[in-house]
Amino acid sequence: MKNWHLRDIILVTILAIFMGVIFWALNPVYTLLAAALAPLGLQPLANEILLGVWVMAGPLAGFIIRIPGAATLGEFLGAVVEMFLGGIWGASTLISGAIQGLGAEIGFAATGYKRFGWGTLALSTLTTTIVTFAWDLLRSGYATYHLNFLLLLFVVRLLSVFFFGGVLTKLIANLLIRAHVLPTTNR
């Protein structure tokens, strides 16, 4: 099993900052979406639609660095960046970052950080969605929503995470493999 070296640590941090910056650029979109949905009481939907972008740092880091803990660390550092930039969830992003990362991590850990194909990604998508949703049930009071609305939120989140954390991540990984910067052990 690989160990953390200086280069990996720097890489995971730079990657997290990049993802933080890209997510940050999305802020106006998020605010507009939230403002448009807020009068109907649908503001959390804005969260769910864009959540996939935010949790992408986890699977990407896991995919690229392939060391146990990479997904968690990538996502957690992204949260640190967001807090220093002044994100809307403040200190709690640190905790959600770690939790989101763990969600993705479970998917990679289940395959022993050895297989990097669709199966691992689909699994990681599912675990991320479930773990982060459980956290929001507590933190954001989702537990008090009516069941139908809750289901809607869950499905939207799953789709978003599946698209960004699954499909898009796979496409990116394919490009990286073609460019010979990632090993091809991709089954």
Partner: peptide, 9 residues
């Protein structure tokens, strides 16, 4: 969020 919880929950 509070408004949403009030309407949908």
């Amino acid at each position: 969020l509070v408004w949403s919880l009030k309407l949908q929950g």
